[in-house]
Amino acid sequence: MVWFKKRQFFVFLIIAVLAVYSMRLTEFDLSKFRDFENMGDFLSKWFPMNTDSLPYLFTESVLTISIAFLGSLFGLIIALPLSFQAARNTSGHRLIFAATRFYLSFLRSVPEFVFGLILLTTLGLGPFPAVIAIVLHNIGVLGKLISELIEAADKGPMEAMSAVGAKRWIGNLFAILPQIWPNVLSQFFYRFEVAIRTSLILGLIGGGGIGQQLFIHFKTFQYQLVSVDVLLIMIMVILVDYIGGKIREKVI
């Protein structure tokens, strides 16, 4: 047992206990798959696809992409400067660092759905509250991820910028941003992809887009339209992933 230490067995044991406990709480039971054919019957109702509403659903998909894009873009634009204050090596002051970290944690801890519900009271139904809900959550997530990239950046260029007499914030910006930019883009596209799925959920509370259509079609048993919705969602996610990968390749 050269590879393992006693402490690791203890950790494995704790993980195993937690897994068993969680399985009990979640009624995790693979034998329930014996009614698998029910799923088959249900899925068979999805076909043939009803493509009559495709142009309309396509427009709704574009709306979903717009919600997700703006939610991620504005999230990134706001998170970027905040992340420099939330990183130990670039923050102006310990108090600013602690306050920014707390603020980002708070934004991250509130799900978009909850932000959406709160914003409905002021902004009413529609895609706008969905965009703001995604922006707020993305500030928290991207702010934390980017601040960790900043902390891990090579200190050499920062030292060189100090040595030439650059102002601290300019030096930090130029020394760090080019280093972390490909990873920032990766995070952005991942959050964009997540935002597409989130905007589907926000459709349930009137956020609009293909998510709202999916919800309506499900509720009204129009399964042949549900299959079209699901297909469009899959295409959107794959497309964003592909484009993101290509852009990142170019940037690197």
Binding site: G156, P157, E159, A160, S162, A163, V164, G165, F174, A175, P178, Q179, W181
Partner: peptide, 16 residues
């Protein structure tokens, strides 16, 4: 600082 040119072992250039 601006009257001091400094060079480093690992060059400390800005990548990209």
């Amino acid at each position: 600082r601006r009257k001091t040119g400094m060079i480093f072992q690992h060059f400390n250039l800005i990548p990209r």
